[in-house]
Write a protein that binds this DNA or RNA. Structure first.
Length: 262
DNA sequence: AATAAGTGCAACCGCCCACGC
DNA sequence: CGCGTGGGCGGTTGCACTTAT
């Protein structure tokens, strides 16, 4: 087999994808599909090799990707599946809808491997809670959340709801912040129904008991600071916010909200 | 405040496999 | 059967970003 020429030698671009390239790729695939990856960049007008386009789409731009922290259940699944399947990341990914092999591989190498190792050596991993993802800004972005969308929310929602909604937008699937143009990016509104809920003044936010705040919790299990406005039924509250975070796809990024100065 | 060390993850590389001719 | 090609996979790297000193 003759190896395909290197992208650079062909005058093709390498490295991080820009939001413009993402948009071109997404709109091309949405319109024409991706029958032939090698031909795609040429047809779409991208200076990328087909492989790079495929990777970007599979690992980042696909609309069904569930981004954000892995749940405890997902982590357990990965550990169990890895035990039976080994490093067959794509096979493991097939069992976890919305997760990519690359993401699973990264998570494994980042901390699950360590955790399993500690467990097998008899080290108590009960308190070795999985590391929450940091809220990282990348110079490249995936899809765009228009500033209009955020403005629409801010115009109609209450202050707390706005914080929740905009925070969630910043971290929900297929959305990210571009430090190059200082804007939130996305074109898909998976959390739109949540935004509707947040902007619906008839919605009553669950309240939380005082004891909830007095109990010491691990940082990554702490609830949103937005909850400081509330106080009664703890289970109901946690259920509600858990659902919000889950649906936003970023259960582990609750620390985002903790950063707000109320 | 500055710097070093550590971390997370997107993207690339190179190999393998399936398929068509 | 051998060859060329495209697609897929696992391993690895590079670097933005965070945390520690």
């Amino acid at each position: 087999m003759v190896r395909a020429p290197c992208c650079e030698k062909m005058g093709l671009k390498k490295g991080p994808w820009t939001s413009e390239e993402d948009e071109i790729l997404v709109s091309h695939i949405n319109t024409f599909g991706h029958g032939n990856w090698r031909a795609l960049p040429k047809l779409a007008g991208l200076l990328r090799c087909g492989k790079s386009c495929r990777l970007r789409w599979i690992n980042y731009l696909r609309p069904d990707i569930k981004r954000g922290n892995f749940t405890k259940e997902e982590e357990e699944s990965i550990i169990n599946l890895h035990e039976s399947l080994g490093n067959r990341w794509s096979a493991i990914a097939a069992k976890l809808p919305g997760r990519t092999d690359n993401e699973i591989k990264n998570v494994w190498h980042t901390y699950l491997k360590k955790r399993v190792h500690m467990k097998s050596n008899g080290i108590n991993v009960q308190d070795q809670s999985t590391k929450p993802k940091k809220n990282r800004k990348k110079t490249t972005t995936s899809l765009k959340t228009t500033t209009d969308e955020v403005e629409m929310i801010t115009a109609t929602a209450t202050a707390d709801n706005v914080l929740m909604a905009s925070s969630s937008l910043s971290s929900s699937p297929s959305r990210s912040y571009s430090s190059t143009d200082n804007s939130w990016n996305s074109s898909i509104s998976e959390s739109s129904h949540l935004i509707e809920e947040w902007t619906d003044t008839s919605i009553e936010f669950p309240e939380i008991e005082d004891s909830f705040w007095s109990e010491v919790m691990p940082v990554d299990e702490q609830p949103s600071a937005a909850l400081t406005c509330a106080n009664t039924n703890i289970d109901e509250s946690m259920d509600f916010w858990f659902r919000v975070f889950m649906e936003a796809g970023e259960l582990g990024e609750k620390e985002n909200y903790l950063n707000f100065d109320y």
